[in-house]
Design a protein around this nucleic acid. Structure first.
Lengths: 187, 187
DNA sequence: GGAAGCATGTAAAGTGTTACATGATTTT
DNA sequence: AAAATCATGTAACACTTTACATGCTTCC
Protein backbone atom coordinates (compact mmCIF):
# COMPACT_ATOMS: atom_id res chain seq x y z
CA UNK A 1 0.00 0.00 0.00
CA UNK A 2 2.93 2.29 0.71
CA UNK A 3 3.93 3.01 -2.87
CA UNK A 4 5.83 6.20 -3.61
CA UNK A 5 3.03 8.13 -5.22
CA UNK A 6 3.93 11.51 -3.76
CA UNK A 7 6.01 14.11 -5.53
CA UNK A 8 8.65 16.26 -3.82
CA UNK A 9 6.13 19.04 -3.20
CA UNK A 10 4.08 16.59 -1.19
CA UNK A 11 7.07 15.56 0.90
CA UNK A 12 7.96 19.19 1.43
CA UNK A 13 4.55 19.77 2.98
CA UNK A 14 4.72 16.57 5.00
CA UNK A 15 8.13 17.60 6.31
CA UNK A 16 7.03 21.09 7.23
CA UNK A 17 3.96 19.76 9.02
CA UNK A 18 6.05 17.31 11.00
CA UNK A 19 8.34 20.18 11.94
CA UNK A 20 5.34 21.79 13.63
CA UNK A 21 4.22 24.24 10.95
CA UNK A 22 0.54 23.55 10.77
CA UNK A 23 -1.34 25.76 8.31
CA UNK A 24 -1.04 26.19 4.56
CA UNK A 25 -0.28 29.85 4.94
CA UNK A 26 2.51 29.19 7.43
CA UNK A 27 4.00 26.46 5.23
CA UNK A 28 4.24 28.78 2.25
CA UNK A 29 5.87 31.44 4.38
CA UNK A 30 8.32 28.98 5.92
CA UNK A 31 9.30 27.73 2.47
CA UNK A 32 9.99 31.31 1.38
CA UNK A 33 12.42 31.58 4.29
CA UNK A 34 14.09 28.22 3.97
CA UNK A 35 13.79 25.76 1.09
CA UNK A 36 12.84 28.36 -1.51
CA UNK A 37 16.32 28.26 -2.95
CA UNK A 38 16.17 24.59 -3.90
CA UNK A 39 12.43 23.99 -3.82
CA UNK A 40 9.96 26.85 -4.05
CA UNK A 41 6.20 26.75 -3.78
CA UNK A 42 3.11 28.96 -3.92
CA UNK A 43 -0.26 29.21 -2.20
CA UNK A 44 -1.93 27.81 -5.28
CA UNK A 45 0.20 24.71 -4.89
CA UNK A 46 0.06 24.31 -1.14
CA UNK A 47 -3.68 24.40 -0.59
CA UNK A 48 -4.69 21.84 -3.23
CA UNK A 49 -1.79 19.63 -2.17
CA UNK A 50 -2.93 19.74 1.47
CA UNK A 51 -6.40 18.67 0.34
CA UNK A 52 -4.93 15.81 -1.70
CA UNK A 53 -2.74 14.63 1.16
CA UNK A 54 -5.71 14.67 3.51
CA UNK A 55 -7.84 12.79 0.98
CA UNK A 56 -5.23 10.09 0.78
CA UNK A 57 -4.78 9.87 4.52
CA UNK A 58 -1.23 11.20 4.81
CA UNK A 59 -2.36 14.08 6.99
CA UNK A 60 -5.41 14.94 9.10
CA UNK A 61 -6.89 18.41 9.29
CA UNK A 62 -9.11 20.19 11.76
CA UNK A 63 -10.71 23.60 11.85
CA UNK A 64 -9.15 25.92 14.37
CA UNK A 65 -10.44 29.40 13.64
CA UNK A 66 -8.75 32.39 15.23
CA UNK A 67 -11.60 34.62 16.24
CA UNK A 68 -13.88 35.02 13.25
CA UNK A 69 -11.06 34.17 10.85
CA UNK A 70 -11.22 30.65 9.43
CA UNK A 71 -8.12 28.54 9.84
CA UNK A 72 -7.36 24.88 9.27
CA UNK A 73 -4.49 23.07 10.94
CA UNK A 74 -3.02 19.75 9.89
CA UNK A 75 -0.99 17.00 11.50
CA UNK A 76 0.87 14.11 9.87
CA UNK A 77 -0.74 10.67 10.28
CA UNK A 78 1.07 7.37 10.83
CA UNK A 79 0.80 6.73 7.11
CA UNK A 80 2.27 10.14 6.41
CA UNK A 81 5.17 9.55 8.80
CA UNK A 82 5.95 6.28 7.10
CA UNK A 83 5.82 7.82 3.63
CA UNK A 84 8.10 10.68 4.70
CA UNK A 85 10.67 8.39 6.31
CA UNK A 86 10.59 6.01 3.34
CA UNK A 87 11.31 8.92 1.07
CA UNK A 88 14.19 10.18 3.22
CA UNK A 89 15.72 6.71 3.26
CA UNK A 90 14.95 5.90 -0.35
CA UNK A 91 17.86 5.08 -2.61
CA UNK A 92 16.03 6.40 -5.64
CA UNK A 93 18.11 9.02 -7.45
CA UNK A 94 16.64 12.38 -6.49
CA UNK A 95 15.31 14.74 -9.16
CA UNK A 96 17.61 17.59 -10.02
CA UNK A 97 16.92 20.41 -12.38
CA UNK A 98 18.19 23.86 -13.24
CA UNK A 99 16.46 26.55 -15.23
CA UNK A 100 18.99 29.26 -15.74
CA UNK A 101 18.16 31.85 -18.36
CA UNK A 102 21.37 33.72 -17.63
CA UNK A 103 23.54 30.78 -18.64
CA UNK A 104 21.44 30.35 -21.74
CA UNK A 105 22.26 33.90 -22.74
CA UNK A 106 25.92 33.33 -21.98
CA UNK A 107 25.85 30.24 -24.18
CA UNK A 108 24.75 32.34 -27.16
CA UNK A 109 26.88 35.38 -26.35
CA UNK A 110 29.25 34.90 -29.27
CA UNK A 111 26.63 36.69 -31.36
CA UNK A 112 27.29 39.87 -29.35
CA UNK A 113 29.98 42.50 -29.73
CA UNK A 114 32.77 42.39 -27.14
CA UNK A 115 31.26 45.29 -25.24
CA UNK A 116 27.78 43.78 -25.19
CA UNK A 117 29.18 40.43 -24.09
CA UNK A 118 31.03 42.08 -21.23
CA UNK A 119 27.87 43.93 -20.26
CA UNK A 120 25.97 40.64 -20.20
CA UNK A 121 28.54 38.94 -18.00
CA UNK A 122 28.58 41.95 -15.73
CA UNK A 123 24.80 41.71 -15.32
CA UNK A 124 25.09 38.02 -14.54
CA UNK A 125 27.72 38.75 -11.93
CA UNK A 126 25.56 41.44 -10.38
CA UNK A 127 22.55 39.12 -10.32
CA UNK A 128 24.62 36.45 -8.56
CA UNK A 129 25.94 39.00 -6.07
CA UNK A 130 22.44 40.19 -5.37
CA UNK A 131 21.21 36.63 -4.83
CA UNK A 132 24.18 36.00 -2.56
CA UNK A 133 23.44 39.05 -0.43
CA UNK A 134 19.72 38.44 -0.12
CA UNK A 135 20.30 34.78 0.68
CA UNK A 136 22.66 35.73 3.49
CA UNK A 137 20.22 38.32 4.77
CA UNK A 138 16.90 36.48 4.43
CA UNK A 139 17.62 32.78 4.70
CA UNK A 140 20.91 32.10 6.46
CA UNK A 141 20.14 33.93 9.72
CA UNK A 142 16.99 31.89 10.26
CA UNK A 143 18.80 28.65 9.45
CA UNK A 144 21.42 29.57 12.01
CA UNK A 145 18.79 29.31 14.71
CA UNK A 146 18.00 25.69 13.78
CA UNK A 147 20.82 24.08 15.77
CA UNK A 148 19.42 25.66 18.93
CA UNK A 149 16.30 23.58 18.22
CA UNK A 150 18.37 20.45 17.91
CA UNK A 151 18.42 20.46 14.10
CA UNK A 152 21.64 20.65 12.15
CA UNK A 153 20.62 19.93 8.56
CA UNK A 154 18.59 23.04 7.76
CA UNK A 155 21.76 24.99 8.41
CA UNK A 156 23.83 22.67 6.22
CA UNK A 157 21.37 23.10 3.37
CA UNK A 158 21.41 26.87 3.80
CA UNK A 159 25.21 26.92 3.91
CA UNK A 160 25.28 25.07 0.61
CA UNK A 161 22.98 27.69 -0.89
CA UNK A 162 25.03 30.60 0.41
CA UNK A 163 28.28 28.98 -0.72
CA UNK A 164 26.80 28.35 -4.13
CA UNK A 165 25.83 31.95 -4.77
CA UNK A 166 29.20 33.20 -3.55
CA UNK A 167 30.95 30.72 -5.78
CA UNK A 168 28.81 31.72 -8.73
CA UNK A 169 29.41 35.44 -8.19
CA UNK A 170 33.14 34.82 -8.05
CA UNK A 171 32.97 32.71 -11.19
CA UNK A 172 31.30 35.47 -13.19
CA UNK A 173 33.64 38.08 -11.75
CA UNK A 174 36.59 36.08 -13.02
CA UNK A 175 35.04 35.64 -16.45
CA UNK A 176 34.35 39.36 -16.59
CA UNK A 177 37.98 40.08 -15.73
CA UNK A 178 39.18 37.70 -18.44
CA UNK A 179 36.95 39.35 -21.02
CA UNK A 180 38.01 42.83 -20.02
CA UNK A 181 41.63 41.79 -20.29
CA UNK A 182 40.72 40.72 -23.81
CA UNK A 183 42.59 37.46 -23.38
CA UNK A 184 41.85 33.82 -23.65
CA UNK A 185 40.95 32.00 -20.44
CA UNK A 186 44.10 30.76 -18.71
CA UNK A 187 43.74 26.98 -19.05
CA UNK B 1 5.95 45.45 -32.46
CA UNK B 2 9.05 43.85 -31.01
CA UNK B 3 7.67 43.04 -27.57
CA UNK B 4 9.34 40.31 -25.56
CA UNK B 5 6.66 37.70 -25.92
CA UNK B 6 8.98 34.72 -26.18
CA UNK B 7 10.00 32.53 -23.31
CA UNK B 8 13.53 31.15 -22.84
CA UNK B 9 12.63 27.92 -24.66
CA UNK B 10 11.80 30.01 -27.71
CA UNK B 11 15.12 31.82 -27.56
CA UNK B 12 16.91 28.52 -27.11
CA UNK B 13 15.43 27.32 -30.39
CA UNK B 14 16.13 30.61 -32.12
CA UNK B 15 19.72 30.47 -30.95
CA UNK B 16 20.24 26.90 -32.08
CA UNK B 17 18.74 27.64 -35.49
CA UNK B 18 21.01 30.63 -35.93
CA UNK B 19 23.95 28.43 -35.01
CA UNK B 20 23.09 26.31 -38.04
CA UNK B 21 21.13 23.48 -36.43
CA UNK B 22 18.10 23.32 -38.63
CA UNK B 23 15.63 20.57 -37.71
CA UNK B 24 13.63 19.95 -34.54
CA UNK B 25 15.23 16.59 -34.08
CA UNK B 26 18.73 18.02 -34.35
CA UNK B 27 17.88 20.84 -31.93
CA UNK B 28 16.74 18.42 -29.28
CA UNK B 29 19.89 16.37 -29.70
CA UNK B 30 22.13 19.42 -29.60
CA UNK B 31 20.44 20.58 -26.40
CA UNK B 32 21.08 17.18 -24.82
CA UNK B 33 24.76 17.66 -25.57
CA UNK B 34 25.08 21.30 -24.56
CA UNK B 35 22.53 23.41 -22.71
CA UNK B 36 20.77 20.46 -21.05
CA UNK B 37 22.48 21.24 -17.77
CA UNK B 38 20.96 24.70 -17.43
CA UNK B 39 18.06 24.44 -19.87
CA UNK B 40 16.69 21.10 -20.96
CA UNK B 41 14.00 20.38 -23.51
CA UNK B 42 12.07 17.54 -25.13
CA UNK B 43 10.67 16.66 -28.55
CA UNK B 44 7.19 17.42 -27.29
CA UNK B 45 8.36 20.93 -26.50
CA UNK B 46 10.50 21.58 -29.55
CA UNK B 47 8.04 20.73 -32.31
CA UNK B 48 5.08 22.81 -31.09
CA UNK B 49 7.45 25.68 -30.30
CA UNK B 50 8.86 25.57 -33.84
CA UNK B 51 5.32 25.77 -35.19
CA UNK B 52 4.54 28.72 -32.92
CA UNK B 53 7.70 30.57 -33.90
CA UNK B 54 6.93 30.05 -37.58
CA UNK B 55 3.33 31.22 -37.08
CA UNK B 56 4.61 34.41 -35.53
CA UNK B 57 7.22 34.99 -38.20
CA UNK B 58 10.37 34.51 -36.11
CA UNK B 59 11.49 31.61 -38.27
CA UNK B 60 10.69 30.26 -41.72
CA UNK B 61 10.47 26.57 -42.52
CA UNK B 62 10.73 24.55 -45.67
CA UNK B 63 10.35 20.88 -46.48
CA UNK B 64 13.61 19.18 -47.28
CA UNK B 65 12.94 15.48 -47.24
CA UNK B 66 15.88 13.09 -47.17
CA UNK B 67 14.88 10.35 -49.55
CA UNK B 68 11.39 9.20 -48.62
CA UNK B 69 11.82 10.46 -45.06
CA UNK B 70 10.02 13.72 -44.35
CA UNK B 71 12.12 16.51 -42.90
CA UNK B 72 11.52 20.19 -42.28
CA UNK B 73 14.32 22.71 -41.93
CA UNK B 74 14.03 26.19 -40.48
CA UNK B 75 15.97 29.42 -40.70
CA UNK B 76 15.72 32.53 -38.52
CA UNK B 77 14.01 35.53 -40.11
CA UNK B 78 14.99 39.18 -39.69
CA UNK B 79 12.33 39.47 -37.02
CA UNK B 80 13.75 36.42 -35.28
CA UNK B 81 17.29 37.83 -35.39
CA UNK B 82 16.12 41.05 -33.87
CA UNK B 83 14.21 39.27 -31.10
CA UNK B 84 17.20 37.09 -30.30
CA UNK B 85 19.64 40.00 -30.14
CA UNK B 86 17.23 42.07 -28.07
CA UNK B 87 16.99 39.24 -25.61
CA UNK B 88 20.76 38.81 -25.40
CA UNK B 89 21.19 42.52 -24.77
CA UNK B 90 18.18 42.86 -22.48
CA UNK B 91 18.79 44.15 -18.99
CA UNK B 92 15.81 42.22 -17.65
CA UNK B 93 16.82 40.01 -14.73
CA UNK B 94 17.04 36.49 -16.12
CA UNK B 95 14.89 33.71 -14.66
CA UNK B 96 16.70 31.37 -12.35
CA UNK B 97 15.31 28.28 -10.72
CA UNK B 98 16.49 25.15 -8.98
CA UNK B 99 14.55 22.00 -8.28
CA UNK B 100 16.75 19.85 -6.11
CA UNK B 101 15.06 16.94 -4.39
CA UNK B 102 18.35 15.89 -2.83
CA UNK B 103 18.72 19.14 -0.91
CA UNK B 104 15.11 18.85 0.18
CA UNK B 105 15.89 15.49 1.73
CA UNK B 106 18.98 16.91 3.36
CA UNK B 107 16.89 19.71 4.81
CA UNK B 108 14.67 17.19 6.61
CA UNK B 109 17.45 14.76 7.52
CA UNK B 110 17.31 15.51 11.24
CA UNK B 111 14.43 13.03 11.37
CA UNK B 112 16.87 10.25 10.47
CA UNK B 113 19.24 8.23 12.64
CA UNK B 114 22.92 9.18 12.34
CA UNK B 115 23.60 6.18 10.12
CA UNK B 116 20.67 6.89 7.83
CA UNK B 117 21.67 10.53 7.57
CA UNK B 118 25.21 9.56 6.62
CA UNK B 119 23.83 7.13 4.04
CA UNK B 120 21.72 9.92 2.57
CA UNK B 121 24.65 12.32 2.32
CA UNK B 122 26.75 9.58 0.80
CA UNK B 123 24.11 9.02 -1.88
CA UNK B 124 24.00 12.73 -2.59
CA UNK B 125 27.75 12.81 -2.94
CA UNK B 126 27.69 9.84 -5.29
CA UNK B 127 24.96 11.43 -7.39
CA UNK B 128 27.02 14.63 -7.67
CA UNK B 129 30.12 12.63 -8.60
CA UNK B 130 28.20 10.76 -11.23
CA UNK B 131 26.81 13.99 -12.67
CA UNK B 132 30.33 15.43 -12.65
CA UNK B 133 31.74 12.46 -14.53
CA UNK B 134 29.01 12.26 -17.13
CA UNK B 135 29.15 16.01 -17.68
CA UNK B 136 32.87 15.83 -18.33
CA UNK B 137 32.38 12.87 -20.64
CA UNK B 138 29.27 13.90 -22.58
CA UNK B 139 29.19 17.68 -22.63
CA UNK B 140 32.61 19.20 -22.01
CA UNK B 141 34.43 17.49 -24.89
CA UNK B 142 31.97 18.83 -27.43
CA UNK B 143 32.11 22.31 -25.91
CA UNK B 144 35.88 22.19 -26.22
CA UNK B 145 35.51 22.07 -29.98
CA UNK B 146 33.55 25.34 -30.02
CA UNK B 147 36.57 27.69 -29.95
CA UNK B 148 37.82 26.08 -33.16
CA UNK B 149 34.57 27.35 -34.72
CA UNK B 150 35.25 30.83 -33.43
CA UNK B 151 32.94 30.55 -30.41
CA UNK B 152 34.19 30.94 -26.88
CA UNK B 153 31.04 31.13 -24.78
CA UNK B 154 29.68 27.60 -25.18
CA UNK B 155 32.91 26.44 -23.56
CA UNK B 156 32.60 28.99 -20.76
CA UNK B 157 29.07 27.81 -20.02
CA UNK B 158 30.19 24.18 -20.03
CA UNK B 159 33.12 24.99 -17.76
CA UNK B 160 30.73 26.54 -15.29
CA UNK B 161 28.64 23.35 -15.33
CA UNK B 162 31.62 21.09 -14.85
CA UNK B 163 33.02 23.30 -12.09
CA UNK B 164 29.65 23.32 -10.39
CA UNK B 165 29.31 19.55 -10.22
CA UNK B 166 32.88 19.16 -8.98
CA UNK B 167 32.27 21.79 -6.35
CA UNK B 168 29.05 20.12 -5.29
CA UNK B 169 30.64 16.68 -5.05
CA UNK B 170 33.40 18.11 -2.90
CA UNK B 171 30.86 19.88 -0.71
CA UNK B 172 28.96 16.67 0.01
CA UNK B 173 32.19 14.76 0.55
CA UNK B 174 33.18 17.25 3.21
CA UNK B 175 29.79 17.07 4.88
CA UNK B 176 30.00 13.29 4.87
CA UNK B 177 33.42 13.45 6.49
CA UNK B 178 32.13 15.80 9.16
CA UNK B 179 29.21 13.54 9.94
CA UNK B 180 31.39 10.45 10.08
CA UNK B 181 33.73 12.23 12.46
CA UNK B 182 30.63 12.83 14.55
CA UNK B 183 31.63 16.42 15.11
CA UNK B 184 30.20 19.84 14.57
CA UNK B 185 31.15 21.58 11.36
CA UNK B 186 34.32 23.64 11.78
CA UNK B 187 32.92 27.12 11.25
C1' DG C 1 18.01 -9.29 -41.86
C1' DG C 2 18.01 -6.76 -37.67
C1' DA C 3 19.32 -2.93 -34.80
C1' DA C 4 20.21 1.69 -34.23
C1' DG C 5 19.43 6.10 -35.49
C1' DC C 6 16.73 9.80 -38.03
C1' DA C 7 12.61 12.40 -38.12
C1' DT C 8 8.01 14.14 -36.94
C1' DG C 9 4.44 14.59 -34.49
C1' DT C 10 -0.14 13.94 -31.13
C1' DA C 11 -2.78 13.01 -26.79
C1' DA C 12 -3.40 12.91 -22.15
C1' DA C 13 -2.20 13.79 -17.84
C1' DG C 14 0.10 16.25 -14.58
C1' DT C 15 2.32 20.41 -12.65
C1' DG C 16 2.87 25.08 -11.80
C1' DT C 17 2.03 30.20 -12.18
C1' DT C 18 -0.67 34.35 -12.15
C1' DA C 19 -4.33 36.70 -11.13
C1' DC C 20 -8.40 37.14 -8.75
C1' DA C 21 -11.49 37.19 -4.72
C1' DT C 22 -12.67 37.59 0.06
C1' DG C 23 -12.59 38.96 4.65
C1' DA C 24 -10.78 39.10 9.56
C1' DT C 25 -7.22 40.74 12.78
C1' DT C 26 -3.28 43.27 14.25
C1' DT C 27 -0.17 46.97 14.07
C1' DT C 28 0.99 51.73 13.25
C1' DA D 1 -8.29 55.15 10.11
C1' DA D 2 -5.21 52.92 7.19
C1' DA D 3 -1.85 49.54 6.20
C1' DA D 4 0.05 45.23 6.89
C1' DT D 5 -0.52 40.63 7.85
C1' DC D 6 -3.17 36.37 8.48
C1' DA D 7 -5.75 33.03 6.12
C1' DT D 8 -8.04 30.41 2.44
C1' DG D 9 -9.14 29.39 -1.65
C1' DT D 10 -10.60 29.30 -7.16
C1' DA D 11 -10.06 29.93 -12.23
C1' DA D 12 -7.60 30.33 -16.19
C1' DC D 13 -3.80 29.65 -18.36
C1' DA D 14 0.82 28.02 -19.42
C1' DC D 15 4.06 24.67 -19.33
C1' DT D 16 6.05 19.97 -19.07
C1' DT D 17 6.32 15.11 -19.13
C1' DT D 18 5.17 10.57 -20.63
C1' DA D 19 3.50 7.69 -23.65
C1' DC D 20 2.07 6.62 -27.99
C1' DA D 21 2.33 6.28 -33.11
C1' DT D 22 4.64 6.03 -37.46
C1' DG D 23 7.94 4.96 -40.89
C1' DC D 24 12.40 5.68 -43.40
C1' DT D 25 17.55 5.02 -43.71
C1' DT D 26 21.99 3.54 -42.50
C1' DC D 27 25.12 0.55 -40.32
C1' DC D 28 26.55 -3.97 -38.81
Amino acid sequence: VSVLRLNPSGYLILGMLRAGISTGYAIKRAVDLSTRFFWATSFAQVYPELARLEDQGYIAGRDEPRGGRPRKTYRVTKKGERALDDWLRSSRVPAFEFRDEGLLRLFFADALSDDDAIALVKRLREAAEHADRSFREDILPLAESAPAQGMRFPLDAARLGADYYSWRAKWFAQLQAELEAGGRPKS
